[in-house]
Simulated scan of single mutants.
Amino acid sequence: MAFRADEAAAAGYERLRAYLIPRDASPSERTRSEEALRNIVEKYGPPVDGYPTWHPLVRNHDGQTPETHPNDRCGYEGLDHTVYLAHAFITCPYTASGKPAEVIDSVERLPSHIAATITAEVLDVSFYNTGTTSILVSCEWSELLEPGGTVPKRLAVPLMLEQELPCWTWAQRAELWETMRPYLLGNPHGQRSSLFVSQDTALAIKKIYLAMVDSGMFGPLKMG
């Protein structure tokens, strides 16, 4: 079945809305939360299931254990009740837990990168539960995104190379493209694009990855 980005985004938004709009809030609070959520999604892109391993929101991980979701192995602390957008994520730790401050502090400690700046902002609306603190962790790209909110090829390709090239020093087997697709294109994805990259960018990533595999730098191709 062909990948339909609009359908994937719409379905993701309904799940996001059902999860984040607090049931214990008053009708007026729920309305305000829904409006804030729409604005955030409009600015930072549709809900996603997982990031490409090169995405600035998850790139600070151990090269031998790639991550596709923000967590403590990417440098974050205090995350709870977290949902993911293409260029940001919202996390909602309980206020009394002390975790909101941990989230803010850990984001401020993340290493800088030329491609994007990661920031954390406490929101003035309730998401998930009225007893939580809603925090938006956003990826502010150094260049404009493409129409549709996808990452430009001139950023996506070098970010991918930064992640994959060092693997030649320890890899023993090269992974099939089918295995690597969700790690390099993100989720959800189709055969030739995703909510993160256009068809043109995805094709460039695939060609470069297969060229590295063909060179033998990762070792023999893993079959099955």
Score class of each variant (00 low, 15 high):
residue 103 V to P: 02
residue 126 S to A: 14
residue 137 V to I: 15
residue 61 H to D: 08
residue 99 K to V: 03
residue 61 H to I: 00
residue 153 K to L: 13
residue 21 I to Y: 09
residue 32 R to E: 15
residue 30 R to Q: 15
residue 91 T to Y: 06
residue 129 N to M: 04
residue 72 D to M: 10
residue 41 V to C: 10
residue 51 Y to Q: 03
residue 45 G to T: 10
residue 51 Y to L: 06
residue 64 Q to W: 13
residue 24 D to L: 00
residue 24 D to V: 01
residue 82 T to N: 04
residue 29 E to L: 04
residue 24 D to Q: 03
residue 150 T to Q: 03
residue 14 E to G: 03
residue 74 C to N: 12
residue 105 D to F: 09
residue 46 P to Y: 03
residue 19 Y to C: 10
residue 43 K to Y: 04
residue 128 Y to G: 02
residue 84 Y to K: 06
residue 130 T to A: 04
residue 135 I to V: 11
residue 98 G to E: 09
residue 98 G to N: 11
residue 125 V to K: 01
residue 50 G to Y: 00
residue 82 T to E: 03
residue 143 E to D: 15
residue 94 Y to T: 07
residue 156 A to C: 07
residue 109 R to N: 11
residue 82 T to C: 07
residue 40 I to R: 06
residue 125 V to N: 01
residue 112 S to A: 15
residue 118 I to Q: 04
residue 43 K to S: 13
residue 57 L to I: 05
residue 159 L to K: 01
residue 14 E to P: 01
residue 73 R to L: 14
residue 94 Y to I: 07
residue 63 G to Y: 08
residue 147 P to K: 07
residue 15 R to L: 13
residue 118 I to V: 15
residue 48 V to G: 08
residue 75 G to F: 05
residue 70 P to S: 09
residue 143 E to S: 14
residue 19 Y to N: 11
residue 125 V to I: 10
residue 16 L to H: 09
residue 158 P to Y: 07
residue 83 V to L: 08
residue 153 K to C: 13
residue 79 L to G: 02
residue 67 E to S: 14
residue 138 S to N: 09
residue 51 Y to H: 11
residue 150 T to S: 13
residue 23 R to K: 12
residue 113 H to S: 15
residue 57 L to D: 06
residue 67 E to H: 11
residue 105 D to T: 10
residue 106 S to Y: 05
residue 40 I to K: 06
residue 147 P to W: 11
residue 112 S to L: 12
residue 108 E to K: 13
residue 110 L to N: 05
residue 89 F to I: 09
residue 158 P to C: 05
residue 125 V to M: 02
residue 26 S to R: 09
residue 42 E to I: 00
residue 50 G to R: 06
residue 30 R to G: 12
residue 132 T to M: 01
residue 26 S to G: 10
residue 117 T to R: 14
